[in-house]
C-alpha cells in the first residue's frame, strides 16, 4: 500500500468520523474532548496530505501547526471548564449540563 493522497484522505476521514462518533456517544466531558482531538487530528492529516501531494506547498503544514496549537489551547480551556463543572456539579456528565435546555 503506497502512500497516496487518497490514502491520507481516507485516514483523515476515518479519524474525523471516529471523533464525531466519540463526541456523540461519550457522556464524560473528557471523552467528548478526546473526540474533538480526534476530529482535529483528522483535519490535520488532510492538510498535511494536501501539502504533500498538491500545489499547496508549505501552507498546509503551517495550517496544521496552527490547528495543533489551537487544539492545545482548547484542550487547556476545556479541561479548565470541565474541572469547574466538576466543582459545581460533582460530575462531569455532560447530560447533566442542560441548563441551556429550551
Amino acid at each position: 500500500m503506497q502512500p497516496s493522497l487518497s490514502g491520507y484522505l481516507l485516514i483523515g476521514a476515518v479519524l474525523f468520523t471516529c471523533g464525531v462518533v466519540c463526541m456523540a456517544t461519550r457522556r464524560n466531558a473528557i471523552g467528548v474532548l478526546m473526540g474533538v482531538e480526534l476530529v482535529l487530528n483528522g483535519a490535520n492529516v488532510n492538510l498535511v496530505a494536501f501539502s504533500r501531494y498538491t500545489t499547496l506547498g508549505i501552507d498546509g503544514q503551517i495550517y496544521s501547526l496552527f490547528i495543533i496549537v489551537l487544539a492545545a489551547a482548547e484542550a487547556a480551556l476545556a479541561l479548565a471548564i470541565a474541572l469547574n463543572f466538576y466543582n459545581n456539579h460533582l460530575t462531569i456528565d455532560v447530560d447533566k449540563a442542560s441548563s441551556l435546555k429550551g
Binding site: 490535520n44 492529516v45 498535511v48 504533500r52 503544514q61 496544521s64 501547526l65
Partner: peptide, 9 residues
C-alpha cells in the same frame, strides 16, 4: 506526518 515529508509537523 513524517511519511508525508512533514517532519516538523
Amino acid at each position: 506526518f513524517f511519511l508525508a515529508d512533514a517532519d516538523f509537523v
